[in-house]
Design a binder for these strands. Structure first.
Lengths: 235, 235
DNA sequence: CGACGTGTTGATCTCTCTCAATTAGAGTGG
DNA sequence: CCACTCTAATTGAGAGAGATCAACACGTCG
């Protein structure tokens, strides 16, 4: 049941602790909402299965997707106890969430520093993903942003499936989701996506993403593998 | 010495624990860099005094400021132990940092779950600030972004000074910093800033920010105090 | 006094948005 | 099996917010 990062490498005792804090499981269909923006008292969750995303909206409806959630991700650490949720969470696919009681976070820290540590690390990691998106949205062109997102989502999705190879990975986002995740308009997202596809960089069909030329995409995105980051401008 | 959020409300024992993990103090002048982008093995810090900011850059020099750091903020939780820093940190003003050994985070969790919990909470809070910026950069117009940033930075700066009232708050950012924090060009930032200033919404002079019409700025930013978030679009 | 960094402003330029239509599939009901 | 509907994907055209290019003003500093 637990091959999820958060629960990896833990003693039976620790797993039991988690079990004891668990308050239930919640299953949702695709395109449903788990947490409403501004909802108060939202519990803590872990995504066990499926895809979802966190988002914020402005009063006139403009929406920004903050991050996509895949199995193993944590949800709701942000909101201070008893505070309003700072963001909404919707599903993309049918999804299963593990629900925890409100004070689970504290109990976890108190009773297992190891897992507590893991949670802060996981939270920090979540932030660094938002950092990446912010760099894209703030400074990359539409083409670059899309290349970046494709690479990142592909990596995450591929890491979750045993059969990592041909056939691509599941890709349940609509173009509207991509647009909202990258701060682009739907139309421009479509045009840019088509352009990259026609250039043979990738392909999306039947809910699956195929990478045709990762190198080219990475170059486009100004993404430097795991090596050293960029040199300073030569100017 | 410690009125900082992280160290607030803790027992002497806990403060002593922190002291024992402390590895020294580092003072920097304005516009210096504490952590280089991609630097490995960067320690953990806490900002004791002054202003700084986290940023990422692309290989051609485009820079995105991820967040501004004020006294009390944590630095470096993101990078996995032994990993390269995911972002750089530069100072804006002279600044004093408290440096911790690499494993301090773990020790803190192990020896004081309370403080461990606080750290995860602080980290989560940091993320929610990045979330806010992402919403701005992705979906707000230039005017709206600037209004938003002014309000947010004003609040944070005001919270740190006893004399919260007239005279405004310190504001050590150049327009280039504002631009890089909002994903705008320097020129457009300047023009927008002037427009708002001429409209009497705020004023920046001699390194200080004065809010002339917070209501109008908040309306512009589509910021809903602490009340309920936006209604869905009326369509 | 010249060099620099920061702030201003005007004049283009262009990427991306908005508006409009059309196509393609999936699901429904007759 | 076929109209009918709805959502997602596409494409073209025109509009515009914001980027880029160029100058210039000001204050600080060696």
């Amino acid at each position: 049941m637990r091959s999820l990062p958060l629960f990896l490498d833990h003693t039976d005792e620790e797993l039991e602790l988690v079990q004891s804090l668990k308050r239930g499981v919640q299953s949702l269909g695709p395109l449903e909402t788990l947490i409403h923006e501004g909802q108060t008292d939202a519990p803590l969750y872990t995504l066990l299965e499926g895809w979802a995303f966190r988002y914020k909206t402005l009063s006139d409806g403009r929406r920004q997707i903050l991050s996509f959630l895949l199995a193993g991700d944590f949800i709701g650490v942000q909101q201070k106890m008893g505070d309003a949720a700072a963001h909404g969470v919707d599903t993309l696919t049918p999804a299963v969430f593990c629900m925890f009681q409100r004070n689970a976070l504290w109990e976890l820290h108190r009773r297992s520093p190891t897992m507590g540590f893991n949670v802060t690390w996981l939270t920090a990691h979540e932030e660094s993903m938002v950092d990446d998106t912010l760099l894209s949205v703030g400074r990359r062109s539409a083409e670059e942003r899309i290349a970046m997102m494709l690479i990142l989502l592909f990596k995450r999705a591929a890491a979750l499936q045993a059969d990592a190879g041909a056939g691509g990975v599941p890709f349940p986002l609509t173009q509207q989701h991509i647009a909202d995740g990258l701060g682009l308009s739907l139309v421009h997202t479509n045009k840019t996506l088509r352009k990259l596809e026609r250039r043979g960089l990738h392909q999306i069909s039947q809910g699956r993403l195929h990478m045709r030329d990762v190198k080219a995409l990475a170059r486009l995105a100004d993404l430097w593998g795991d090596g050293r980051p960029p040199q300073r401008p030569l100017v």
